[in-house]
Design a protein around this nucleic acid. Sequence first.
RNA 1: GCGCGUAUAGCUCAGUGGUAGAGCGCUUCCUUGACAUGGAAGAGGCCGUAGGUCCGAUUCCUACUAUGCGCACCA
Length: 859
Amino acid sequence: MSELPKQYDPKTYEQELYSAWEKAGVFKPNQTAIKEGKQPFVIMLPPPNITGSLHMGHALQDTVMDILVRFHRMLGQPTMWVPGIDHAAIATNRVLEKQLTAEGLSRQELGREAFLERAEKWYEDTGAIILDQMKRLGCSCDWTRQRFTMDTEYSRAVQEAFVRYHAKSLIYRGNRMVNWCPRCESVVSDLEIQHEQRSTRLVTLRYPLTDGSGAIEVATTRPETMLGDTAVAVHPADTRYTQAVGKTVRLPLMDRVIPVIADERIDQSFGTGAVKVTPAHDPLDAQLGETHKLPIINIIGESGALTEQAGQFAGLSVGEARKAVLKALDEQGVVVSEEDHQHAVSLCERCGTVIEPLISRQWFMDMSKLKSETISVAEQGLVKFAPPRWKKHFIEWMKSVHDWTISRQIWLGHRIPVWWKPGARGTNNEEGNYVVSVEKPEGEWEQDPDVLDTWFSSALWPFATLGWPQQSENMKTFYPTSVLVTGRDILYLWVARMVFSGLELLKDPVYERPAQKDRIPFDTVFIHPTILAKGGQRMSKSLGTGVDPLELIEQFGADATRFGLIYQTSFDQQAMKFDESAIKASRNFVTKLWNIARLIDSVEEKDVPTVADEWIRARSLTVTAEVTVLLEAYKFGEAAHVLHEFVWKDFADWYLEILKVEGSTVVARQVFTHTLQILHPFMPYVTEVLWKHFNQSDFIATSEWPAVEAAGSMAEEPMQYFQQVVETIRSARVLFNIKPNSTVDIYLDKPVFSPAAAAKMTNATLIETSTSTMRHIPLPAGGVIAIGSEEITEEGVRGAEAKLIKEQQVLKSSLVGQEKVLDGMRGKADPAVIAEKEALLTRSQERLREINKSLSLLK
RNA sequence: GCGCGUAUAGCUCAGUGGUAGAGCGCUUCCUUGACAUGGAAGAGGCCGUAGGUCCGAUUCCUACUAUGCGCACCA
């Protein structure tokens, strides 16, 4: 056994060990275990955006996954963690467009084909930096199975999914109100918009009734849309307008006659209680328009400019039009008043541009059937959530989901497998003039220029990565997967969509998966906490609150970064404020492990087990059981605390101190290597290095998780007494103001199991009989120890007396309180609890007697 | 606006129907060969505010305040 270096330097080992694991195929599913029919443990990495780099959220998420994967690997299950990346169409599209802008080119000038070539080159150049960063964290992914959502096979799966959904009428072509981003010139889904409170001007306009009986005043924050008004609506019960319903008004500027309608969806209390209706550019108005069969006048085009329908305002941007329309209205005396108003505007999540609601021909996913089955499996618990409260969120959200707009008007992404008869697309004559097919059909057809929402392809991730739509061996062995680990932000965006995709697309009899449970992509969804900056702000580069995990790895090592992150989390936590001091503390913990190993090496070989050996063995079994249970329950932070305390307090501070004097180095090594094993999922590197150091064959990464056994032991009590004696002597030094480096005489009327260790740990000499000059100190569990030292002066004794009197007083008042509590409990509380309480009281009383006794002995 | 969380030591967080715990930080002492990235001993909290249930509430309930998040078609 070679000698360990004095210091542990992570950089010396991390990369080398990682390659060694990879080379040995440690990260691949164990084929023997598969043949033996052991339950596989499978995790699909939520594919990060190819444009991204590792941030703290990833670091936590990846650590959680790696802990699970390493834990289950050690449990002997065939374990597979499939990595991959997402093409992130909208994000990449933006990057490329920026490049073009810099070159003074528009994407139209470049052309679609050249644009896509650039994209491909960009993907190649960028590579998946983030995946390499994961390797530095120590993630044990099976890199031979790495996938990209744009690779040929995957793209094929995406198109196949579209075709199959369409065949089941779950995808349809519709002309409906959508969220349009004028900057992206594309539709975006409900989940890709954000709401923001903004202050704006609420303008009240006066529309004259055509019969000359007055006018109706309507309030609006978007005066320019009045050009597309096709009605004025009021609440049927609103007496102010009863007269007007059924009449018509003359729309200013446009000189159009439009009806006054009544509808219960109008809020009487807002503004004037009357609302202008623009079915083409407002979601509520669209609904009203549908109910009341109102004409739809599109005045805003897809570029964000006003259309021909806007008459004299055609060509203006929305912003320009607002000013111009307002000015024109004002000149005609239509504007009654203006006031400041707070309201929510919809913004494009990607670029922050204000979303224009407009009616457009798009591809939609019909959610009605899909959602009911998804809700049902969640309610039945066929897909589990951890922490469990996310189940409710999931169901609630699913219940309110609308049809999903899946087409996007960008070039990058999976092209929609729909083929049009030339000239048919975008007309009122679409029906029957297209074919849905992965391959181009015979004859003259033009492929739909749109691409699919990135999430449409991500939704297929758990099975498309395993070879779907083929009925592959991988699908049979590894699907459904075990756990999906993710943040709550994509619970709806992604998780929900994977669930219904799996449920629906695996219904085909060829997959032999009639049971819902076999079609749901994962057994459990684990939602980890969101990481915030220490002050509670969102972590972001622009706010300067971001922390780079790679810098932490560089400075403290991967093990410390992982452990520190996990140490700060707890199971039911929604957000975690990141404190770098935890990483530092974990680095110290890694050092502690290192030095423990060095101490074990330096202690002379011996094998005469004492109570301490028995105690630490039992403790280690208990800890193994606890950690196992906690890991199975996704309680990673809690497990980290248990391990930290055991290693530092029990093993290092007590057990090893005793081992220096007597005991068994065999037991020490055994307990320590077991501890390394249960620490391995958290800290893969240092545990692997130390495992090898203690001459263990193979890798700790593939070693067998220690068996969980009952820890029957009689050592607890003598060990506890030993600890009390040592602590009491140490406290007594402070009490009497005795220097730590001067020896004291100690007399114990009840001996400890290892007097030599107790003596060494307290720098004391244990003597056979007490002498008259010795001072007496009570032990917490009863009994008295005598302490003698030349340094005990009258002053020291008086100081001790003062401290004891203080303790006596505290104890006395506590006793009064305890008795009062007990009085209240008698006859009302659970007898067992009362008994427990009484025992506590008795102990306090004994303690008081001891203090009184030692006070009298001090005199 | 509706919904879901959180409020405990200076900081980051556990926890319990019976007068509170950890890590870091702080104070004092210790350079005794595993570790100063260490050891020992300590200080420090009317457990957000106000009510309610109970013999008893930091813990359960209600309201409020602060803070985070999600959802939302108030023109």
